[in-house]
Structure formats: C-alpha cells, structure tokens
Simulated assay, not measured.
Amino acid sequence: MERRSLLRAAVLGGTTAALGGSLWRGAAYAAPAQPGTGPYGALGSPDANGIRLPSGFTSRVIARSGQTVPGTSYTWHNAPDGGACYADGTGWIYVSNSEINPGGGVSAVKFSSTGAITGAYRILSNTRTNCAGGKTPWNTWLSCEEVSLGYVYETDPWGVNAAVRRDAMGRFKHEAAAADPVRRVIYLTEDETNGRFYRFIPTTWGNLSSGTLQVMVAGSGTSGSFSWADIPDPDGSPTTTRTQVSGSKSFNGGEGCYYANDTVWFTTKGDNRVWQLNLTNNTYELAYDDSLVSSGTAPLTGVDNITGSSSGDLFVAEDGGNMEICVITPSDVIAPFLRIDGQSGSEITGPAFSPDGRRLYFSSQRGTSGSSTGGITYEVTGPFRV
C-alpha cells in the first residue's frame, strides 16, 4: 500500500534482494495489512447495546426498524444498509439505504450541533434492494440498486429535491460508489461473482445525466497495471456490462468503495479482500487478504462496506464474520475496532463519520432477530484519530 513511505524488498528464494529498473517496479508492491495492535487498544466488555468498544468510546442506538426515530414521528426503514454523513449548518445528516425489495429507498436522520436528533424523513421511495452507494462532492447521495439491471439514484439528503434516476451510470447489480474530484469520475462496484470495477465520467462534472461508463482492464493477478475501456452498451441488455469488454478484470463480489488522496479502495466479499488502486500511476494491489495473514487468525472476514477517516485509517465492516468493524492503519496494521455481540445472523452496514470525524454511524442490518425488520442503527462517539 502506498500510504506508507517504504516499500518492501522482493523476497526471492528465501533471500532478500533490492531490485532495480523495471523488475523492481514490478515487485515494489507493499505487503497486504497484517494483524497487530490497533491505534485504539483492546476491545472491552459488551456495553448495554451489546457492543465491545475500546476504552473511551461509547455507543447509542439512533433508530430501530419499524419503530419511530426518537424525538420524531418517522418510522425507520427495514434492513438499513449503506450510508453517509453531510454537514448541515452546525449539525449534520446521516442517510441510510433500505435493502428490501420491493420498497427499498433511503431515509435520513438530522442532528443538532450537540448530536441531538432533530428530524427524520424519507428521501427515496419505491426502488429495489438499495444496498450501498456514495456521497458526491456536491452533497448528494448516490443510492445503488443491488439487483440485476439495477439503477443508480441521485438523492437529496435534505429531502427538498426529488430523487433522479441516473441511467447513464449503467444498469447492473450496483453496490457502492465513490467520487474522485481530481479526475472528475465516479467509481462503481458490482456485486456479482464475476463482477467488474467501473468508473463513470460525467459529460459535465456535477451533472450525472450524461457521460461515459468505463470498465477496468487488467491482468488476472493481484497486482499490476490497469487501464480503462468504454462500455459499448451501458444499459446492459441484451449483453451484461461485465461481459462486453474483452480483458476487463473480474472481481469476486464487489462491495464497498472509498476514495481519498489519489487512491480508491474497494472490497470483494467472495475472497475477503480489500483492493487498492493507485491512481497516480495506474497500478493496483491488495491492501488486505485474509488468506495472506502471516500468523494467527485473520481479524477481518466477511469483508463488506468500507470508509475512512481524515487520519488515513480505513474502517471495514463485516457481513457475518464475528460482526466487527476493523481498522487498517496507514502503517498496514489491521485490528478490530468494535464488535457486536449476540447478532450473528446480521451484518454491519453503512459506516460513516460525522463531518468533524468524532462520531461513527453504522447499522446492524438484521439486529438480534436475524430479520430485515430487526435492523438497528448506531452511533459511536469517542477519541477518533482526526
């Protein structure tokens, strides 16, 4: 991972050799993250909400599926999934997808500067299996349908402007999206066992009504160089987008996606990997792979949603596993940040930080019941590195 300054030397035949020229560049990929002591220390005993947290952190329940959000008359949606936060004056808003079909959609909770809930409302309705998505630099939420020939919907977190379906972003089993303001593109993951990694280039940055959908082209390895190729038919019919371009790289179950500092990370649940694309030199590598943990038990399995903090830490949520959010530090150490006890039939979804980076929001999609009607949305507050 290029977040650290030193590259490992290539290990050949049990000896270490520093390589030069093109051979060195081909070998100069950092090793995937390894287990170690995280920046926040060990997890404590379960709190009143069943969440194990490091010292100094506390949790509270923000909303429960089928129940009114505290302090409001709005009923929270079932199966809460992907989410994001938006500054709102001195307060903020957290948006959350609903991964049900039919119905789907997105809800929002509004907070004051002290974190008190001041409102809750619907910003998208009558869609299908809204799983993850992504925040745009112009403060809209891209909600993605995780169904065959699914769409991306652009929504207003304030609920003022009507949601708009963005057909130009392609029809496939959408999962997550991440905006790159430098290259003025939106990256997109696809939740298929042979899914692809895409980018959408809007004709005009800030307007997603038209543009070009491209797919990543690369070899079959876990590191190397990559390029982009246009998708001839973004509507995915009769030929699926993932099979239209020869040489496009296949990924096993694309999930979360996050951009920062000329780098985009995305996860694949089929092989428990976190991938890293280094956008300044068009190379890719593994930031984490549970099968490449050098010793002990892999701390992160069921790899799913991903977000990051201003400190450079990545936070990766588990779908199953042992219901943890793990942190991957800039020094390539991975460790559990929190664990939810007693909810083995669920998954952790929608991790997102408040604008000041001091509160982390996420959901347990099926809660203690194991049903989509049992979702619980949480807030964790504490001394996050910012």
Rank of each mutant, 00 (worst) to 15 (best):
A48Q: 11
A31Y: 03
I51F: 03
A30E: 11
I51H: 07
P32F: 05
G41T: 07
S45Y: 06
L19C: 01
A42G: 11
A42E: 15
Q34Y: 09
A17C: 00
R25K: 13
L53Y: 04
A33I: 12
A17M: 02
W24R: 15
G38W: 02
A17Y: 10
S45Q: 14
P54Y: 02
D47P: 02
S22C: 00
P39H: 06
A42W: 05
T16S: 07
P39I: 05
A48I: 05
R52Y: 03
A27G: 03
A28F: 03
G20Y: 01
I51K: 06
G41W: 07
T37H: 04
Y29F: 15
A42H: 06
P46Y: 09
A27W: 04
T16Y: 01
G38E: 03
Y40A: 09
L23W: 00
P35L: 03
P54R: 06
W24M: 02
A31L: 10
A33F: 13
A30F: 01
P35Q: 04
G20F: 01
A33N: 08
I51A: 13
Y29A: 13
P39E: 06
T37G: 11
A48G: 03
Q34D: 04
R52V: 06
G50T: 11
R25S: 12
L43T: 10
G36D: 09
A28G: 15
A30H: 13
G44M: 10
P32C: 05
D47Y: 10
L23S: 06
T37K: 15
T16H: 00
Y29W: 13
G44R: 08
D47E: 10
P54I: 06
G38D: 04
T15G: 00
L19N: 02
G41V: 05
Q34S: 14
G20V: 02
G50M: 11
P35R: 04
G36Q: 04
G21A: 10
T16M: 01
G50V: 15
G44I: 14
L43W: 13
P35Y: 08
S22P: 00
A18M: 04
L23A: 10
L43S: 10
